[in-house]
Design a protein around this nucleic acid. Sequence first.
DNA 1: ACAAAAGTGTTAAACTTACACCCATGC
DNA 2: GCATGGGTGTAAGTTTAACACTTTTGT
Lengths: 303, 303
Amino acid sequence: MKDHKMTPAEEKYLKQYDIKAYDRPSLTADMAVFAILTSDQQEEYRKDPKKYLGILLIRRGSYPYKDDYGLPGGFAKKNETIEETAHRELKEETSVDSAYLEPFSVFSRPGRDPRGWIISQGFLALVDAGKYQVRAGTDAWEAAWFRIDMEQEELKKHVRSDRADITTLYRLKLEKDDIRLSALVKETRVFTGHHEKTEYTILEDKGFAFDHAEIIVRALKALRERTAQSGRIVFDLMPELFTLYSLQEVHEIILGEKLLTPNFRRKMAPFVLETSQIAGSGAGHRPAKLFKRNTEAFYSLPF
Amino acid sequence: MKDHKMTPAEEKYLKQYDIKAYDRPSLTADMAVFAILTSDQQEEYRKDPKKYLGILLIRRGSYPYKDDYGLPGGFAKKNETIEETAHRELKEETSVDSAYLEPFSVFSRPGRDPRGWIISQGFLALVDAGKYQVRAGTDAWEAAWFRIDMEQEELKKHVRSDRADITTLYRLKLEKDDIRLSALVKETRVFTGHHEKTEYTILEDKGFAFDHAEIIVRALKALRERTAQSGRIVFDLMPELFTLYSLQEVHEIILGEKLLTPNFRRKMAPFVLETSQIAGSGAGHRPAKLFKRNTEAFYSLPF
DNA sequence: ACAAAAGTGTTAAACTTACACCCATGC
DNA sequence: GCATGGGTGTAAGTTTAACACTTTTGT
């Protein structure tokens, strides 16, 4: 911190300044923890087990929203940054200690938390599932990985001369064993003149705590945007060593579309380095080379 | 907001829940208000007056940092979103009532405000200066447009096998008449494995309140990034009607580099519509066609 | 005439897209 | 053999970058 030399008058002012005289919110960090999971059953000897996108949720043990599922998160403490809050809470609640964290939005709508005025900083958290698959679900908090699916269900466009309204419905489905959560979130993008304003409304909510259905929808949207833009973010979901095909699968899972292998490889080539290792054999197909990140390639990236 | 039906047990819990039992921060919105300004002196009859990037600052009338300059901003109130706080404070302090607002970062470093635990949501605010050039500077708050300049002064790279440190120094200079503010801000990007962490330190600070020198540096960086990425954001700095050359000038001012006219026009073509009007005559050169935004082109933009 | 801004055309290089094709493996 | 994942090449289309060149105006 910069050093700020105070005058006697300023010191006096600060001494009598009572910050508690003003109404203050509570501040929390909520983390959308994503990972790539592998379904354990293998349909056929030749076929690799299917991957899917998972998100880490916690079953609430206390009111409000007791027994509903919510994102891991918690209140900010004095003398820490909000990023530190996120890391600390993630470790406390889910034992995840090395996630990539990226703030993506602030949630401050009045009434979003029945306990009072509580504002939340949303974080994208990406982890390599290999390390944490075991830990989740052992704690009293009942942290668990859910399979996440989201569909864009409907789309209305209202275009007038100087104003346009675009409404999109997102159908969110989370699933773990026999637990199914679902929600319907409406997104309204209003363009007036030159300004865009986007609003979200939860239309339907089954099993989510607070406004976490909305936070999850927006977190997944943020993940997709960043994946489409540069792709560098998906490396945080990958293990140290990976095959190019698995990297492609992860892209496909996040974006929800098939990619053409030769083109994908050319695009990724600068960001990976071939290792001498090859992927474990055993499957009925040609074994693949293992690659690792080319860390240096990221330094010079503009964004 | 979704409706949440409470059980009697939950209602009871909430009644006895005392949110004030926990330590809470104050929350503010701070706005980096940018506009394109025009220097009033015209060197030669043929030459257009030079444009430059301006930022709106307020001279603090009270402690702490009395007489220093800071961003417009203020405390969040209950029953409003943080975006509403930003709009409200902007209007109250600077009479600006139609800015494009975009959150770009949260500032929560302990000790950043000597009054206590105060966290700030930073907003980019872009306005068409034509509307507001007069208002600033009339109020008791002494809001005023400063010319902003930022140079990347130095660059150190420390690359090891699995870790890289990149240090950049930003020299920030603000100027209005005979008032000159300046600051030196150090940016440290640390890449470890796959994770990047960026930290900022204020090394030198002349005339800025709080950590606002850092906020301004990061706001300008955010503005440059968004300009380079899609360019749509700069339209919020433009008046209703503009010439393509002035649009190009604005891009050049923000990015700090010259662009090639033919290429720039091809890139912008989808986003503008030619009008029948032509720019006011009087200058010793061919008069230009006036363009307006092609609002529809923005709807389909992915980001 | 001339300097400044306004505006167009043309070409090479780079990147994207789509598709066709071959390889290696375990049952 | 054959299905599955692993992997390469190539040609068409699009976008970007660089440069050369013409137009219109007020003094």
